[in-house]
Every structure is written in C-alpha cells, then in structure tokens.
Design a protein around this nucleic acid. Sequence first.
DNA 1: CGTCGCCAGATGTCTGACAAGTCTACTTGC
DNA 2: GCAAGTAGACTTGTCAGACATCTGGCGACG
Lengths: 234, 234
Amino acid sequence: MARKSLVGVVADELLDRIIAGDFPPGSSVPGELELSAKHEVSRMTVREAMKTLEAQRILSVERGRGTFVNPLNRWASLEAVLRAASEGQNEASASVQLIELRRMLETGACELAATRISDADIHALFGYVASMRQAHEVNDVAAFVDADLAFHDLILRASENVFVAVLFEPLHRVLEKRRAETSAVPTIQVHAIGHHQNIAEALESRNPAKAREAMDSHMQQTLDDLKTLVLGAP
Amino acid sequence: MARKSLVGVVADELLDRIIAGDFPPGSSVPGELELSAKHEVSRMTVREAMKTLEAQRILSVERGRGTFVNPLNRWASLEAVLRAASEGQNEASASVQLIELRRMLETGACELAATRISDADIHALFGYVASMRQAHEVNDVAAFVDADLAFHDLILRASENVFVAVLFEPLHRVLEKRRAETSAVPTIQVHAIGHHQNIAEALESRNPAKAREAMDSHMQQTLDDLKTLVLGAP
DNA sequence: CGTCGCCAGATGTCTGACAAGTCTACTTGC
DNA sequence: GCAAGTAGACTTGTCAGACATCTGGCGACG
C-alpha cells in the first residue's frame, strides 16, 4: 500500500487533527473552502474525504451550518477509535480492552456454536489442533498461526450469527500482528494447543456452558500473555 | 427525516440493488457514468455515494479497473448487514441474532464492571430501578424505558471499555424501537424490574461471575420475550 | 417591539474537462 | 510464427468554476 489517493490522505490528516484535539467533539471543522486551500486540493477532494469520515459517523455534516465532530462514543469505526484511544501512553490500555472485547465475542460465539456446530466441523477442529501440534514440532510459526486462525474462524462461522462475524472482522485485522508475535513463543504454543484441544472436546460434548468456559480459559491465557508481553518488558 | 440529500438516495438505492442480489459479491458494479445516467444525477453525486459505501467496506474501488462488491462478512456497517440479513423471511432470525449479540456485549461489560464500578454509580443503579418501579405503578412507559436505557448505559460506561460502547451504539439504535414495544407489557415490566434489581445487587457484591449471571438471566428473559412477540404472533 | 426580508456563509449539485491506471487487442519487429 | 511493445478504449481520480439551496443573523419596516 505505497500510494494512497489524495482523498485518503486528506481524510487521514483531518482525522489526525481531530484526534490530536484540534477540533473537540461538538465543535465545527473548518469549511470546505478553507480546508481545500490548506491542503492545496480542490473542494471536491475535501468533500469526498468528509464523506468517508461522515460514513464512519466521525463527522456530522449539516447543510447551511457546517460540519461538526461527533463524540467518540458515536464513532462507528473501530480502527478510528483505536487510533484515538491509543494516543499517548494509552496503547497498553487499548490493547487490553481489545482483548477483553475479543473475549466477549469469542466466548459468546463458542457458547452458541456448541448447540449448532456440525459433526464435520468438529472433525475439522480436531484436524486444526493436529496441524498446530505438528507445526509446533517442526517449529513452523506461520503454519501454527494459520491453523490457529482457521480454528477460531470455524467456530465463529459455526455460531451461525452473522453479526458476530461482522463485528469480529475488524478486530481480526488489528490483532493478527500481535498474534504472530505471541504465537512465536514455544511455551505459549504448548499452552494454546492444550486450550484448543479442550475447546474442541467441549464443543464435541455439545455443552454450551462447558464450551464457553473452555474458550474463556483460552482467552484468559491470551490476556495474560499479552500483559506479560506489553507490561513485563523492562 | 423527510428529505434526504441526493447522494443519500443514490447510496440507498445502490445498496438495495446490491442486497437484492443484482451485483453479487466479487462482481463489479456499473461504472460511474452508467449509474449517473440511470439515476439522472451527475457523476460527482454518484462518486460521493460510492465513497460512503466504500467507507463502510461494502464496496472496493480500484482505479482504472472498476468498483467491486465486497463479501458480506467484510462489511463494516451493522445497519447494512442487518438490512441484508433481514431480507425475505429472515427478519425473525436477524432479530434473534441481534439479541444474541447484545447478550454477549452486555454480559461481558457487566462482568468487567463488577470490579470497576464506583460506589456512586451503584447507588445510581438502584435509583434507576426505583424509577422503573415508580414508572410501572403510574403506567408511564416512556419513563420506564428511559430508566431502563440509563441503567444499561451506566453499566456499559462502568465497564471502562471504549470499544464495547462503540460496538454497542449501533445496536442501541436498532433495538430501541422494539424495546419500547416489549416494555409496554406490564408483566414484562415486572420481570425486568426484578432482573435489574438482581443485577444491581450482584454488582454491589463486586462478584464478576455473579454479575455476569444476573445480566445473562435478564438477557435470556429479553430473548424469550422477543421470541414470543415475533414468533407467537399468528 | 415584533416581523419580515435581505445577505453572508455554509453545504449540495451540476457541467465539462483532463490526468492517470488497467486491460484488450492489434501492430510491429525479430 | 511468435513475442514484445504499443495504441486505444474504458475505468476511476482530480480539478475548476458556477449556480442552487439552506441556515442564521442583522437591519429595515410596519
């Protein structure tokens, strides 16, 4: 992603200035003419940038009055909120909150999947665990991560809840980098294999509470791993 | 909301056609010129409509090649996915899935809030329960709903997780109409008051598991109410 | 004193044009 | 004959200027 279109650049810069606090929530943003002069682009480019920010509910455009910044809790873009929440020394806090959110969605999906997952999918889950085990033995981190992701994706799909998948997708993108880091540690790999085995077995028993608990343990481990990785690095 | 801007209309109509299956995921959408002719608007209006859909990850615009429809699981807009999932006879299924999602977020937030909520906020929670009880006695549905919403909002804020609040906000908008319907039934009001009382007491005890369980019971009741309301209407 | 209308400034839309990327198919050179 | 190069058509990206329409405030008029 080397080059971006101008409207993307303008939207990014404008969002940066909003996050930096130049335009607090409720206040108005400079007019389209003023912005087009400052960024040395045409008014239309500014307008399209505004439209993208408006579609994410970051801005509210009111004809004849101006364009205003929405409060952060009305923003619809997880990425934008993440950028805003990661400002300064809050990066660690934001990471923890993301894992907390992932925990809610994954444990919930796992609980739902217990009563809906097919025999074939359960079989596939055990296959992924076997792949993780094998990848661990030959020290193939990429294969390990792939099997890990496939495992969780399958459970998400087996929950048969479209909205969970939709909400989880941006999380997926944000977290996948960190997952590659933690998954590179052999000890963590062993823990993960055990947890995944437990989850698959719990789903096989078709017991929602058990499935939820198994996934919850896994998430707790992930949260602990992240805490030691972020906070325990002197 | 009587009149909408033209770009809003074009974006809506285009989204309708996508949802109707005129342009399946992965396929390309008609060019800007063709669309501007069909909708009898200028190319720029079409472009701005496209930009809003692109910002919601419904479309992918590639310079020189065309504009393409993303698969539904990449869409970033809960509302758009809801519209797509509610097509045909899936409206009941979509409603149930929404409640399932709300259940995950609210139970998770309640569990987190148990260890983070302040004494003052707990006091406020009991105050809202008292308001609900009073509104029930004088049969004031609007006041009942207001106290109900305030109760849940406060817990959400007390979880101190920004991302949960962000993801919950669109859910809030979608569900608030239905909530007004179910909350009008006196029997359901009584149930809700009891559940809210239990939740407040569980949070007061600062026991995460207990708090989660109390909220889960409440969500289960809501789910049952909705099922009898949607499915039990001959 | 209240109401009406005008006006400045904001966004909404249109027209027309050119730039730049991509794919196809034809031309050209070997 | 074949492959490389290229011209063209089609796409989106950006620009310029203009006019329409809405909002809010200010002043003139009744």
